[in-house]
């Protein structure tokens, strides 16, 4: 019944069927039975179509018999992040849909990309098909794609992502071994570091670590945490405040202090404290964060 005759409200839900055809069905079945991805090659223009087509529309040739397997690995040409839910989605948002061009294929196709942090997703990464163990009779015989190499996502914060006040730290107990190894590395066998009896007479009363040993703990902070992987250190200035004794536990802390717009560099405030909370050194560093 119409609510009124001024506006006719209606909704047509028309049933329809659409057939994948022999070739399309074979593509889906080959995914399921053989865990292989097949395409068709046009022998005139050499284009390999995935999913396979029967006809090359450029050359207008029948190519349905020129089946060939393509690689299970490929490159993401572009991608989008699906944020809102629709009934036909196989996943709960948010998830990534990638336009993936498999090696040995010329046409990309769309599939879900998993195991990538959404905010780290980017084009041109390499991905690999992960096949489903449960047959679906759909393209979901490939469950999803995931990265071939995860290291591409392990980059630190870019200049744009860094904000003033962000900080990170690394803590380590400085042992006698550390000091002796450093003496070997540097050739600095100063008795104040390696001769207990000599040191008793000095101003610290016992052996102390080389000044740069606790300070070197800033390297893992800047290089692997903040900004993190991909960072290049430009300059580090520190001032020695207190000695570090063997067995002291030192925390190196870096805090974003200033963003240098013209160079896209970042100035970091550095602070080194021991287990008693005493400052043993402080200073600042200038670093070039990763480009992302």
């Amino acid at each position: 019944m119409y609510r009124n005759s001024f506006i006719v409200h209606g909704k047509l839900a028309l049933p329809y069927q659409y057939f994948a055809g022999r070739l399309g069905s074979k593509f889906i079945k080959t995914l399921e039975k053989e865990h292989k991805i097949i395409g068709t090659r046009c022998k005139k223009c050499n284009t390999v179509y995935v999913p396979p087509r029967s006809i090359c529309d450029r050359c207008f040739l029948d190519i349905k018999d020129n089946l060939e397997e393509v690689s299970k690995e490929g490159t993401v040409l572009s991608y989008t992040v699906v944020n809102s839910y629709e009934d036909h989605y196989p996943e709960r948002p948010p998830f990534i849909l990638g336009l993936i061009k498999l090696d040995k294929a010329d046409t990309p196709f769309v599939h879900i990309i998993k195991n990538v942090p959404i905010n780290k997703m980017k084009s041109n990464i390499r991905v690999r098909a992960i096949f489903s163990n449960t047959p679906t009779d759909t393209i979901l015989n490939i469950s999803h794609f995931e990265p071939v190499d995860y290291s591409v996502f392990e980059v630190g914060y870019t200049y744009e992502e860094l904000e003033i006040g962000m900080s990170a730290s690394f803590t380590k107990t400085i042992t006698e071994t550390d000091v002796y190894l450093f003496a070997g590395i540097s050739g600095d066998f100063n008795p104040m570091h390696v001769n207990e009896e000599y040191s008793k007479k000095g101003i610290f009363g016992k052996r102390v670590a080389h000044g740069v040993v606790p300070q070197s703990l800033i390297a893992p902070v800047l290089g692997t945490k903040l900004p993190g992987l991909g960072t290049v250190a430009i300059e580090i200035n520190t001032r020695f405040r207190r000695p570090t004794y063997f067995g002291d536990t030192i925390t190196a802390i870096a805090t974003v202090k200033e963003k240098i717009e013209e160079k896209k560099w970042v100035k970091m405030a550095l602070k080194f404290i021991n287990q008693k909370g005493e400052i043993i050194a402080d200073g600042e560093a200038i670093v070039m964060p990763p480009k992302g």
Binding site: L99, T107, F109
Partner: peptide, 12 residues
Amino acid sequence: REEHMGTLFGFK
């Protein structure tokens, strides 16, 4: 020109 929509913008 007709393209499979998934490949429309990535096809070469």
